[in-house]
Design a protein around this nucleic acid. Structure first.
Length: 735
DNA sequence: GTAGGGTTAG
């Protein structure tokens, strides 16, 4: 008795029969229970569990339900452990069954909730008003609404359909499965509507793109809370209506509803897309005020926002300040640089990522590959191709192949582009488009047009981008009749209304061919306002075909469209020069000098041993500059000896060059080629990328260089490729 | 004693 007495006094529950639930207060005040509510790990939980056993608490349904709740529901819990406790319980009550159902509704196997529901019925218990919200949560997470519909029958059977919680859960279940009509019917039937039931339906509409329906509901909610606002804002952001998303955000603030992290993530994405750095700044202050400065998701979204709003330096400093970067941080930074046309920086960050032993993924590559394409960084592109083949051949991301096709084409390796294209099993429209425009860039008109036919034969319907591809092929090759035919087919047979780019190709094609009247009448039929490129084509055509009057007209329009672009003045001055109107030429030159208008300087890059070297006009900053200039002079002399006479007429007419670009032998492409000649083995193909169009003299000289130095030179300029070999160019001197 | 709407960034 002496041994038993202290136990009895300290543990009055120990001797109670297991089926008996003692008074609430007795258990609720037990210290072990307080421990459980503070428990944050499974190890601690196990200690608490043994205390429960020691004190006999485990014989009470209340205590057991608390144990099961922790294991099944808490993020620190463990569902299998909950199962083992559950299995040790003789007659689990409602709460315990409900907790198991709830636990599975949060698990990766929500269907097992059903198992507990069925057993609950078999044990003779009826579901109560708590059961269906949990069970329907599981149904919401199942792939189809079938089970949910059966559960709906159960809700009716047990007379709980008017219960607010069960009812809202049903609305949500139907809404999440896209059965919006059923969800709507349930919603309309209920006579108790609040922010939660409204929002369940709104989310259903918004997440499936029915933003306007969602908005109508949203506007009729009696009380909106932050979740309702978020659902609406996210709906607009995901359907590309970023302006509306942003204005809703400002409205929400005006109505003094506090945003939360979800709001801010949607808003940052909208800011990024709309270039709204001001609202982005509001978000930044909010993050700092609310102590979310270390929320990585928010920080990554901020980096993305700054980069896409045109401040990649701010993005970078934020990126550098993050200690624990994840892959998304790297991807947004790389993508941010690429978006800001800072391709070299994008590749630098990519190299840094590899140096930090971070494993890239497909998103990384979808950002890096276009950067390689822009820079003509073929070696890095090839390395990525090898990596992609190794890692993604089993789970191919089709966009990756398309991106690689585009990269190879833009880096001048059209053979490799074709190889990938032929290897792609199920070719998407984007894939066909990439190959067609790739062939187009390389001047392979026949190849591109064959592919267009092949595509049609395979039942793939061309879109507006496909037609930009084929029309630009016709433009590069001077195929006027075919171009006209494609243009008409596009409108007539495919119902595609021409966009600026289509008109751009056609006007350029016609203007070059000297069909200035037809070109002008096409401009007249345009629905949209013709842009600078179109008037530029007219002006270029006037220069080629010596039409002063129309040239003056086009130039005047261009002056107002592009006031800062000296190229238009230069082009008109060339037309005047061709007509011998030297006084006009002089006037323009004086104007340009007075206005201080500067043309974008020519720059050419060349990749040698995976490093991209960039040369500007008369550039002397390269470490091997002296050797480069010596080689450039040698080349110039060799070209002269080979019989090339610098086209003095062009130099004479081209005020621009005299004025800005200096001597032809210091053009950036000459420097890049000279560098290529001194830094690669004899016979190696040189691949160069120029930011402007190649000039006539450099084109002629490069043909000769390809012959006397026995090098294939593949040059990409602003609009297309030139393959120089044995003294000829693939463009047949038409460009 | 347990409950309904949101898993977020590229």
């Amino acid at each position: 008795m002496a041994v038993v007495a202290p136990i009895l006094s300290s543990n009055p529950l120990h001797l109670l029969p297991s089926s008996f639930d003692p008074p609430y207060e007795l258990i609720h005040s037990h210290p072990s229970l307080a421990l459980l509510s503070k428990c944050r790990s499974l190890d601690t939980f196990k200690q608490i569990h043994s205390q429960f056993i020691k004190f006999g608490l485990h014989n009470t349904q209340f205590a057991l339900s608390k144990l099961v709740e922790f294991c099944a529901v808490s993020p620190h819990g463990d569902l299998p452990y909950a199962v083992s406790i559950f299995n040790s319980i003789h007659n689990p009550n409602h709460v315990i069954y409900n907790m198991m159902i709830r636990g599975y509704s949060l698990s990766s196997t929500p269907s097992l909730s059903l198992h507990y529901y069925v057993n609950m019925l078999l044990s003779g218990l009826e579901p109560n008003s708590y059961t269906f919200p949990f069970l329907l949560k599981s149904c919401t997470r199942l792939p189809t609404a079938d089970t949910g519909k059966q559960v709906h029958g159960q809700v009716l059977k047990f007379g709980l359909v008017d219960d607010v919680y069960a009812h809202t859960s049903l609305i949500n279940m139907y809404a999440q499965h896209g059965d919006l009509d059923d969800a709507r019917m349930m919603f309309d039937k209920s006579d108790y509507r609040d922010a939660v039931s409204f929002t369940a339906l709104i989310t259903g509409y918004a997440s499936r793109g029915y933003v306007d329906e969602a908005r109508e509901l949203f506007d009729s909610i009696p009380i909106r809370d932050v979740v309702s606002w978020n659902a609406m804002i996210a709906g607009y952001a995901q359907t590309g209506r970023f302006d509306v998303a942003l204005s809703l955000f400002h409205e929400m603030r005006k109505q003094r509803v506090s945003p939360n992290v979800s709001t801010m993530l949607s808003i940052l994405s909208a800011c990024a897309q709309r270039g709204d750095m001001e609202t982005g700044g509001v978000v930044r202050s909010w993050i700092e005020e609310h102590g979310h400065g270390s929320n990585l998701k928010l920080l990554n979204a901020m980096i993305d926002m700054y980069a896409k709003c045109g401040d990649p330096d701010m993005a970078r400093s934020l990126f550098d300040s993050i200690q624990e970067k994840d892959l998304v941080s790297w991807n947004v930074m790389i993508g941010g640089y690429a978006h800001a046309s800072k391709y070299k920086e994008a590749l630098q960050v990519f190299r840094l990522l590899l140096l930090n032993n971070v494993e890239p993924n497909d998103v990384t590559f979808l950002n890096v590959i276009p950067a390689c394409a822009h820079l003509g960084a073929l070696d890095l592109g090839k390395w990525i191709h090898t990596y992609v083949k190794k890692h993604y051949s089993e789970f191919p991301n089709e966009a990756l192949w398309t991106s690689l096709i585009n990269m190879y084409a833009k880096c001048g390796d059209i053979v490799a582009a074709k190889q990938i294209f032929r290897g792609v099993q199920r070719k998407s429209l984007a894939c066909w488009n990439a190959m067609i425009s790739g062939l187009g860039m390389h001047g392979d008109a026949a190849g591109a047009i064959d592919l267009f036919t092949e595509m049609a034969n395979e039942g793939m319907k061309p879109d507006d981008i496909t037609f930009v591809g084929v029309l630009s092929v016709c433009c590069h090759a001077g195929l006027v009749d075919l171009g006209r035919e494609f243009f008409n087919t596009m409108i007539r047979d495919h119902g595609i209304s021409p966009r600026l780019q289509h008109y751009g190709c056609m006007v350029d094609l016609l203007a070059r061919a000297g069909q200035l009247e037809e070109a002008m009448s096409m401009v007249g039929t345009m629905e949209q306002e013709p842009d600078g490129a179109i008037w530029g084509s007219i002006l270029g055509g006037c220069r080629l075909h010596k039409n002063v009057e129309l040239g003056e007209y086009a130039a005047k329009i261009l002056y107002s469209l592009e006031p800062g672009n000296p190229g238009n003045y230069v082009a008109l001055s060339n037309i005047y020069a061709g007509a011998g109107r030297w006084d006009e030429v002089a006037k323009i030159r004086t104007y340009l000098n007075d206005a201080g208008l500067k043309k974008v300087p020519g720059s050419t890059s060349i990749e040698v041993d995976s490093v991209v070297h960039e040369f500007l006009v008369s550039d002397r900053t390269h470490p091997r500059s002296e050797e480069v200039y010596r080689m450039a002079e040698e080349v110039e002399e060799a070209v002269r000896v080979a019989g090339h006479v610098t086209d003095t007429s062009e130099v004479y007419y081209d005020v621009d060059r005299e004025w800005k670009e200096g001597v032809v032998s210091e053009h950036s492409e000459r420097l890049a080629i000279a560098y290529g000649l001194i830094s690669t083995k004899a016979g190696t193909t040189l691949r160069i990328v120029k930011n402007l169009r190649v000039c006539g003299n450099c084109h002629a000289a490069t043909k000769i260089i390809s012959k006397i130095y026995n090098r294939e030179i593949i040059a990409r300029d602003r609009s297309r490729f030139h393959h120089f070999k044995d003294g000829r160019c693939s463009c047949m001197d038409y460009w």
